[in-house]
Amino acid sequence: MPAIFPRWTNKIPLAIAVLGPLVGAGVIFGVWYYWSPEFTDVGYRPEQPVSFSHKLHAGDMGLDCRYCHNTVEVAAKAAIPPTQTCMNCHSLVKTDSPKLKKVRDSYESGKPIPWVRVHQLPDYAFFDHRPHLAAGVGCSTCHGRIDQMTVVQMDQPLSMGWCLDCHRDPDNNLRPLDRITDMNWDPHSEEALAYNPNEDPERKRKVVPPEHCSGCHR
């Protein structure tokens, strides 16, 4: 009687034993590396209708973040400024620049400039800027060195694990309350390492970030 299985099938168990773990490790690596928001989200830099440079305005000229994003201390969202905020200066400076044509048109017609949103959390995560600023989380901690970006891009993954990293260890990520918009704040500087939010007399409340589900998912 001839053999039912050809001779090469003897190698199948060996192949499974060797390739199986390799493929498994590859899949795990792939998911860990490529499905992470570090890969899918960080570096997102959409093209905006007006090529506004944060490097020029916030970096070189040193405008405070809150000059434009003025709701950030009192509302959940750091609002995109209305066109009038641009025109505060640009009705007097660079008034005939072709790059600013859309801004002037928007101001005259009253129709908003269709800015493209860069940072967007899932709709089930209820992030609120207000308590984060009140606790002394600086702009650059989550948004990176905006003052060095000609085109704004996502700097941090804004994933749940990333949020929890800080909620579980807030002290190393907080700064004095009057340095929130300071883009030059270096979390590794001596000043930052010496700063202890729990001993800051300027603070009226103890820092207790929530770690329970309903802290962010209502």
Binding site: S36, E38, F39, G43, Y44, Y124
Partner: peptide
């Protein structure tokens, strides 16, 4: 498929949509 942190003008990919967009 690039490296983590690569710049891209394409919107972030949502691998599992779940209820990301309600």
């Amino acid at each position: 498929s690039g490296c983590q942190g690569n710049r891209s003008e394409a919107p972030p990919v949502h691998i599992w949509h779940n209820m990301d967009f309600q």
